[in-house]
């Protein structure tokens, strides 16, 4: 099989016919512009489609309007924090099956426990290790990954 890093693939040679949506959409929820930008850069480079929200309220609005394959959520945010956002997501039938990874500077066990309680599927600590972050997102969205 020839590898074409960019551009359309020949129809019959589609590399993963059984995979999920070919271009997973990720919503990054963080009130820090720099962190959003960084995550977006990392993911866009890998071909993900990235949307951004600065707090839980904005994220919920977007999540209800568009389809996402994964939420990347910070904890500390104004208006609606990450815990509240996730709890809301898990209560909402249309959103409850969407995986979510929490991304926070807090590393205390209590914070991690709260994250899973709220409905996180995974927990990463900032500063973000780019490789680990990208690999996690790939795994959680079903993008082939070693």
């Amino acid at each position: 099989m020839t590898i074409q890093p960019f551009g359309p693939q020949p129809f019959g040679e589609h590399p993963f016919p059984r995979g999920p949506a070919p271009c997973p959409r990720v919503l990054v929820v963080d009130d820090t512009l720099t962190v959003r930008l960084y995550c977006a850069q990392l993911l866009a480079r890998e071909g993900f489609e990235v949307a951004e929200a600065v707090n839980g309220v904005e994220a919920l609005e977007q999540a209800l309007e568009q389809d996402f394959d994964l939420f990347v959520v910070d904890i500390n945010m104004a208006r609606m924090d990450g815990y509240a956002f996730l709890a809301e997501v898990r209560r909402t039938p249309a959103l409850q099956a969407i995986p979510a990874v929490m991304l926070s500077t807090e590393a205390a066990e209590g914070d991690i426990a709260r994250a899973y309680q709220a409905g996180a599927n995974f927990y990463l600590t900032k500063p973000v290790d780019p490789e680990r972050f990208v690999a996690t997102v790939k795994l959680m969205t079903g993008v082939p990954c070693r």
Binding site: M1, I3, Q4, P5, F6, G7, Q9, H14, P15, F16, P22, C23, P24, A44, E46, G47, F48, E49, V50, K138, V143, P144, C145, R146
Partner: peptide
Amino acid sequence: LAIAEGSATRS
């Protein structure tokens, strides 16, 4: 991995 990269469009 390279294939995965190619399949998704750049946002």
